[in-house]
Design a protein around this nucleic acid. Structure first.
Lengths: 186, 186
DNA sequence: CCGTTTACGATGCGGTCGCATTGTAACCAG
DNA sequence: CTGGTTACAATGCGACCGCATCGTAAACGG
């Protein structure tokens, strides 16, 4: 076992370069050469860490969901009211600052690709299923009726607000206001 | 003025081939050659009708919004209750049958591209602004409070449900149920 | 009938793509 | 110190890309 290299760290660095590329120029801009350039490494190195482009893209996706999941977990730590927990989860996916704007851009790009890419769709489904289950749990604890349906509604609303904010249809603050007003009525 | 050819008809035919390509394989699959093949014409002909790829793509987008707008207008014809009008508009954009599924796939693809393509973003903004204005008008007529915000919420919710339905997160019928339940509470 | 204009089809060019191959330096076990 | 394995860098290949160019057939105005 020669050369002490943190394999997974390198892969995450490459994945982050891919995120930046997707956020700045969309999925069409993703190529082995562009990702390598964005990460400041050679194309040969990218090939060394990923067997092919598809694996790289899918790793970048799971790497993203992992990061978002981690941040959601942190945001949940100091919340004990169920409805506040629901809000914390949803707010973490809105593009309210630069970091989340990047994540949101990448996430929306992948979401739009899911209908034509079963691997991406499957990954997203499992992530959404997890989030949905958690929201249902908290909504029930808060005494919200129709928790199942309300969870679907909240996630769809938040994703829609995210997409529209990124498209410039309204300001981030407006999106947050729309979400908060909806939560207030529960 | 030789050859009596319906210029705009040909352009729409090419645009529809582009839709099918986007719906089936995403925006990355769009190339002059693939569009030409999908439309059953030569690549030279596509070049004859569009100065470049960008113009073709933007025409395909406005052609789509035009078609959806027309269908919404028809659906509105036999509705006089304001809330039913709101519902009619929104339901037309959900992927409830094959035709609308194709439209929705294309629409979501363009929406996801808006953050990195200002021309697309501008086009979508004007379309959404028009829809928003109409919804606000109808919501006010129905006596719904906070009509401005509620219109934003409804459109975001519907688009989110559309994206999630296309991604396989839930069935079309579930999306409709989530929307209808929300409308019932207004 | 003829010249101009439109409507294409065909071809080619420079560039980029994903990927395979090859070369090489670094490291460690024996 | 040597053989094997890892970690890259470099290069090349065939496919595809957008786009420009060229040739030509068809329709009309004169």
């Amino acid at each position: 076992m020669p050369k002490r290299i943190d394999h997974d760290l390198r892969r995450r660095q490459i994945a982050e370069a891919l995120w930046r590329l997707v956020a700045a120029n969309g999925m069409e801009a993703v190529s082995l050469r562009q990702v390598a350039a964005g990460a400041g490494v050679s194309m040969g190195m990218v090939q060394h860490y990923f067997t092919d482009k598809e694996e790289m893209v899918l790793f970048a996706l799971s790497s993203l969901t992992e990061q978002v999941g981690r941040r959601v977990g942190e945001a949940l730590a100091d919340q004990d009211d169920p409805l506040q927990r629901v809000r914390a989860v949803l707010v973490q996916t809105l593009p309210l600052d630069d970091e989340r704007r990047l994540e949101a851009r990448v996430a929306v790009t992948f979401l739009a690709r899911a209908p034509v890419d079963e691997k991406i769709a499957a990954h997203l489904r499992s992530g959404y299923a997890e989030g949905h289950a958690y929201l249902v749990e908290q909504l029930r604890a808060a005494g919200v009726p129709d928790a199942e349906q309300e969870a679907f509604r909240l996630v769809a609303l938040t994703d829609g607000l995210t997409a529209h904010t990124l498209a410039g249809h309204h300001a981030p603050a407006e999106a947050l206001a729309v979400l908060d007003e909806h939560l207030a009525r529960l």
